[in-house]
């Protein structure tokens, strides 16, 4: 069944070329000496240097990072709780509304989420800044966390928790000692997803940020609206590199773990 026909080879090659060539070009042109982004003027790293001098970008990056860490951490706690409710709580009044509120933000256009939160903050008289962005990001990313965690909880063997109770754990202990360590990979994945979503978000942050706090995507957006700039290329390259290194390392580690686990299982099976 495994025969890679020429058709498959061509479609995979073209497909991945389509996905990656734009980013490769972006990276290459970040080392362009010329200010004109489309003309190659020789190799240079001067745009990286200029980026490092740009206080406004550095400030925005700091705000973005702060918002991402705080909002994804709160979102992970809330999202995990929500996942436990979705999978375990059974029936309670308002369950429909609850699961609706978990799933709706996933498909809600960002412009609407942003607009509605802004109107709320104005209504409450809340000054727009880091706090309002954190509240907004927590709200939509907790829904992503709860989807990731609940998909793990669905396959969780609840007899493990019962076994913990049977062996003398209180309910809280059973969760802390058994359930949480086992679902930890999903919780971490949820945190990472929330973190990236927050780093990435332009639209909701544009609505909920104020003059006191600007995030990196807002800065990038207002810069690129005026056209392509080599400084943004340099910034993009840095961000792409961080993500690529992270994702590749994570997948290598998890692949190696998987291979090891498989080998050990086979060894155990043979020894039986």
């Amino acid at each position: 069944m495994i025969r890679l026909s020429w058709f498959n080879v061509v479609s995979l090659t073209l497909g991945f070329a389509f996905l990656y060539i734009p980013m490769v070009i972006l990276v290459i042109y970040s080392f362009n000496k010329s200010k004109l982004v489309t003309v190659w003027g020789g190799f240079s790293t001067k745009w990286y240097g200029e980026l490092m001098q740009n206080e406004a970008f550095l400030d925005a990056a700091w705000v973005t990072l702060k918002v991402a860490v705080i909002s994804s951490s709160i979102a992970t706690v809330l999202g995990t709780m929500a996942a436990l409710v979705l999978v375990r709580a059974g029936r309670f009044s308002g369950r429909m509304l609850f699961s609706g509120m978990i799933y709706a933000p996933l498909v809600m256009p960002e412009v609407i989420t942003g607009l509605s939160l802004l109107l709320l903050f104005i209504g409450l008289g809340l000054d727009r800044g880091v706090l309002t962005i954190v509240l907004a990001h927590t709200t939509f990313s907790m829904c992503y966390v709860s989807v990731v965690v609940s998909s793990r909880l669905v396959t969780f063997d609840w007899s493990l928790e019962e076994a913990a109770l049977d062996l003398g754990c209180s309910k809280t202990e059973a969760f802390r000692l058994v359930t949480l360590p086992i679902i930890a990979p999903a919780v971490i994945a949820g945190w990472l997803l929330a973190f990236t979503l927050s780093l990435d978000d332009l639209v909701i942050a544009s609505f909920t940020s104020g003059p006191s706090a600007t995030t990196l995507p807002i800065k990038i957006f207002s810069a690129v609206r005026l056209g392509v700039s080599p400084e943004i290329n340099a910034l993009s390259t840095i961000m792409i590199t961080i993500v690529a290194v992270g994702v590749i390392t994570a997948s290598l580690v998890s692949k190696r773990q998987l291979v090891r686990q498989k080998r050990e299982e086979q060894a155990a099976f043979r020894a039986q």
Partner: peptide, 8 residues
């Protein structure tokens, strides 16, 4: 337990 429920 039937599934043994060993803590993995």
């Amino acid at each position: 337990f039937q599934s043994y429920a060993l803590f993995p």
